[in-house]
């Protein structure tokens, strides 16, 4: 796209599952492992559908990279979560369970046994760049017709997968 004021072409570079370029730590005097450097597209390209791989961890909080492909399990959390779509398109279906799906104070997302009984809250179709609220207490399911990449803001929990040595720059 051409920037009319400046007369030059504008290209904003976003990555995708199929096309990304990874940077890195160029060490002078540090151990690159201390920077836990990874790339969400690379991580997701090696993930199973809906495996919630931690790419960021700040004590009890995490950022999880997720491959959205097909239908996910139903999840719920006793705190808000947020989903940022980094690539592709996904539907998010929400249900208000008849009874709490997650113990009070439980940290992180919990995988539910199946679709919970409750009131349908609605659904969203979100694409790259869209940020969606996953409200506290609501059960949610992702549905992706094609592989996509979701970055989840959450807390470390039973569903969080940590495999830092496999995803991070080691040297």
């Amino acid at each position: 796209m051409r920037d009319a004021r400046k007369g030059h072409c504008v290209e904003t570079v976003f990555g995708s599952l199929w096309k990304y370029t990874k940077g890195g730590v160029q060490s002078i005097s540090v151990n690159p492992k201390h920077y836990a450097f990874s790339n969400v597209f690379e991580v997701v390209s090696q993930s199973k559908p809906y495996e919630r791989v931690a790419v960021g961890k700040n004590l009890k909080y995490v950022l999880e990279a997720v491959r959205s492909e097909g239908e996910s399990p139903w999840y719920a959390a006793d705190h808000d979560e947020a989903a940022l779509i980094m690539d592709g398109e996904v539907e998010v279906h929400l249900i208000q369970p008849d009874k709490p799906a997650v113990p009070l104070g439980k940290e992180g997302a919990v995988k539910l046994a199946g679709e919970p009984k409750g009131k349908k809250m609605g659904w969203m179709k979100i694409r790259r760049g869209h940020l969606a609220l996953l409200p506290k207490g609501a059960a949610y399911q992702f549905r992706g017709a094609a592989p996509g990449v979701v970055l989840l803001q959450s807390m470390q929990g039973d569903c969080t997968v940590e495999k830092w040595a496999q995803i991070c720059q080691l040297r």
């Binding site: 990555g15 370029t21 990874k22 940077g23 920077y35 790339n39 969400v40 690379e42 960021g56």
Partner: peptide, 8 residues
């Protein structure tokens, strides 16, 4: 840091 990169 390039698009999709995460670092602490």
């Amino acid at each position: 840091m390039k698009a999709g990169d995460v670092a602490a």
